[in-house]
């Protein structure tokens, strides 16, 4: 029995290895720089993390459903451009937000329809959404020819979205709602089935195609929300603002511990992943490590997290085989 609990602790450490390492970095920085762990600084980090975090929540759904969505970064940029342009044209800010959301939703639905119409596996989804990334990014470049657009944003609801703790509130409520849906509803359960084994889901009478479209739609919509929050915070839009967000989002998801092979995952853990990465990169900033160095780290972080995931699975399978052999 004792060996069992030691094994459990080992498993726990192994499956959260990356998170533990990150928290060690944070603690060390906290010791070196005393005001690093201050409430204000953490709040600030959280605010910065929210935009990526919202995108990462949508990415979690896609990955649980068994596919990547690489178009998210471009959707963030495009939504910002559309919203700011609409506001600058003097249209009501609610309509501007609506346009932005519709654009993200539209691209997401297009992704979903394309992929589920060919019953695309993760490889095809990867490349199609990659193509969509290029398409959406280029559309975002059209209106301003790639230039930064300053927004003439009046005080009001739109501006409110990016102020103070609003981004954090939006981020966390989205995460909680998505996690709740995932673990407590029919829709969430079916998502796990589709991600684990699409054929079983189909042959159990689940509407696989329709469901898959919704994962990309949600991912697109959330990216649009992230784009709106982002440009509300900076009251301007940059047609390349979201470049590389897909990487950051995937990093948050894998560091959080959602498996790359689909079928299981947890949105709250993605939040933890996003926040951990955010605090880490803040810590690295404080330690004087540049953004470019951090990019290297981020790439390696994704690799390490996925490698750990694979390692854990191998170990778990081996243990399971042993147990099975013993019970006959």
């Amino acid at each position: 029995m004792k060996s069992m609990s030691i094994r459990k602790i080992k498993n726990l450490i192994r499956s959260n290895f990356i998170l533990i390492v990150i928290f060690l970095i944070i603690i060390i920085t906290g010791i070196i720089e005393s005001n690093y762990l201050s409430f204000n600084n953490l709040l600030n980090v959280l605010r910065q993390v929210s935009v990526i975090g919202i995108v990462a929540c949508g990415m979690t759904y896609c990955l649980i459903g068994g596919a990547y969505d690489l178009s998210v970064g471009s959707i963030v940029s495009l939504t910002g451009v559309i919203t700011i342009l609409t506001i600058n044209a003097g249209v009501s800010e609610f309509i501007a937000i609506l346009y932005g959301l519709l654009a993200g939703l539209g691209i997401g639905i297009t992704n979903g329809i394309l992929i589920s119409s060919i019953n695309g596996r993760s490889g095809e989804a990867f490349i199609i959404t990659y193509g969509m990334q290029v398409v959406a990014a280029s559309i975002a470049l059209f209106p301003s020819n790639g230039l930064f657009i300053a927004g003439r944003v009046p005080e009001g609801f739109f501006k409110f979205l990016g102020q103070g703790v609003m981004p954090i509130v939006i981020f966390l409520s989205i995460a909680i709602i998505l996690q709740f849906i995932l673990s407590n509803t029919q829709y969430g359960r079916q998502m796990c089935f589709i991600g684990s084994n699409m054929d079983v889901a189909r042959l159990s009478g689940v509407r696989v195609k329709l469901n898959r479209v919704t994962y990309f739609a949600i991912s697109g919509l959330l990216s649009a929300i992230a784009g709106i929050v982002l440009c509300s915070r900076v009251t301007s839009s940059n047609p390349t603002a979201g470049t590389g967000f897909e990487m950051d989002a995937i990093a948050a998801v894998v560091v959080g511990g959602t498996s790359m092979s689909g079928g299981s995952g947890n949105v709250i853990r993605t939040v933890v992943g996003a926040v951990a990465i955010g605090i880490m990169s803040n810590a690295l900033n404080i330690l004087g490590i540049t953004a470019y160095h951090q990019q290297i780290l981020k790439g390696l972080l994704i690799i390490a997290a996925v490698a750990m995931d694979i390692l854990n699975k191998t170990i778990k399978n081996r243990e399971m085989e042993h147990e099975k052999a013993y019970t006959g």
């Binding site: 894998v254 290297i296 981020k298 790439g299 390696l300 690799i303």
Partner: peptide, 13 residues
């Protein structure tokens, strides 16, 4: 996919 996504970011960095 994911491995080269990671190395892509790191090498560019």
């Amino acid at each position: 996919f994911i491995a080269t996504l990671g190395t892509m970011t790191a090498i560019k960095g």
